[in-house]
């Protein structure tokens, strides 16, 4: 945490790393077409940590899949460092909510983390270095030879995070990564994400349904509307860079921001999608 190499920054100060423009996704289920995402436009500056919240069923996962290049949008574009995303780009890593299914049970922790690096054709020495470093960063040194299913849920998600950072992505996408772990583990993992973000300077898009988590983690919080989804509000989190589970959450500013996001989500649920003045 000492060697933090960037200050909180805001849109425009740094070049855009991730650019989503007019994104639309219509699921074509035979006769009935469902418009999951209507018109989403937002940007993440290089090195920014942005949280995305929205009412359940608002198309967060659809959006994330489109950004990750796992699903083709019906309309609009996604750009990573000014290059359009048409397939999963090498500069992007995804941490899924379902760690138990995202980690390969048939591989040891080391092999799980190393596999994407092999596919990247990195030399053996560099791979070993990255695996060791990333496992150390998530506090799992000594578990390299374990299998994921021998670890607790929180530790498994740490493995998934280690795999993501070993991949050295420009953008880290996290899809409700802590929704399935207990509250204490969750707090630890939140601090871990902040720490990794500060240390590596990676751009993070963190999708969550938890308002507290969004405000605690993010430099900015994007609130999505109900489906068909648009960006309902874009809230800058002007909390200090150094955050602490106890003091930050008691901070008056934190409470204010939390209330504001909460109000926006309530509006989103009711479906009144005019942005607040």
């Amino acid at each position: 945490m000492n060697h933090q190499n960037h200050q909180p920054n805001h849109q425009g100060e740094r070049p855009a790393m991730l650019k989503v423009t007019g994104l639309q996704k219509i699921y074509n289920g035979g006769a009935t077409a469902v418009e999951a995402v209507r018109d989403l436009t937002f940007e993440l500056a290089e090195g920014e940590l942005v949280c995305l919240v929205g009412p359940s069923g608002c198309g967060k996962t659809t959006l994330l899949k489109c950004i990750a290049g796992l699903m083709a949008p019906t309309g609009g574009t996604v750009e990573l460092a000014d290059r359009p995303v048409l397939a999963p780009p090498p500069g992007m890593a995804v941490v899924f909510q379902e760690y138990g299914r995202s980690l390969f049970a048939w591989m040891s922790v080391r092999d799980n983390v190393e596999l994407p690096l092999k596919e990247k054709k990195l030399p053996k020495a560099r791979r070993t270095e990255l695996v060791t470093e990333s496992l150390e960063a998530v506090g799992l040194t000594g578990f390299a030879d374990s299998y994921p299913w021998q670890l607790s849920g929180g530790m498994q998600q740490r493995v998934a995070i280690a795999r993501a950072i070993a991949y050295e992505p420009q953008v880290l996408l996290m899809d409700e990564p802590f929704a399935a772990v207990d509250a204490q583990t969750r707090a630890d993992l939140e601090d871990l994400v902040r720490e990794i973000w500060q240390r590596l300077g990676v751009t993070v898009l963190f999708v969550t349904h938890d308002i507290d988590e969004a405000v605690y983690l993010g430099e900015r919080v994007l609130v999505l509307s109900n489906s068909p989804t648009v960006v309902q509000d874009d809230i800058t989190v002007d909390l200090p860079v150094e955050r602490d589970q106890l003091t930050t959450r008691q901070d008056e500013r934190f409470t204010d921001l939390r209330a504001r996001v909460y109000a926006q989500i309530q509006r989103a649920k009711r479906g009144t999608d005019q942005p607040v003045a």
Partner: peptide, 29 residues
């Protein structure tokens, strides 16, 4: 094959053959 495992493999740049070797084959075993 678990869709999450498949998506994970794709998002980490595993090609068709790599996915067969590292995801489909162990699932089928």
């Amino acid at each position: 094959v678990d869709p999450v495992a498949e998506q994970t493999a794709r998002s980490y740049g595993l090609g068709r053959l790599a996915r067969i070797r590292y995801v489909v084959w162990p699932t089928t075993l």
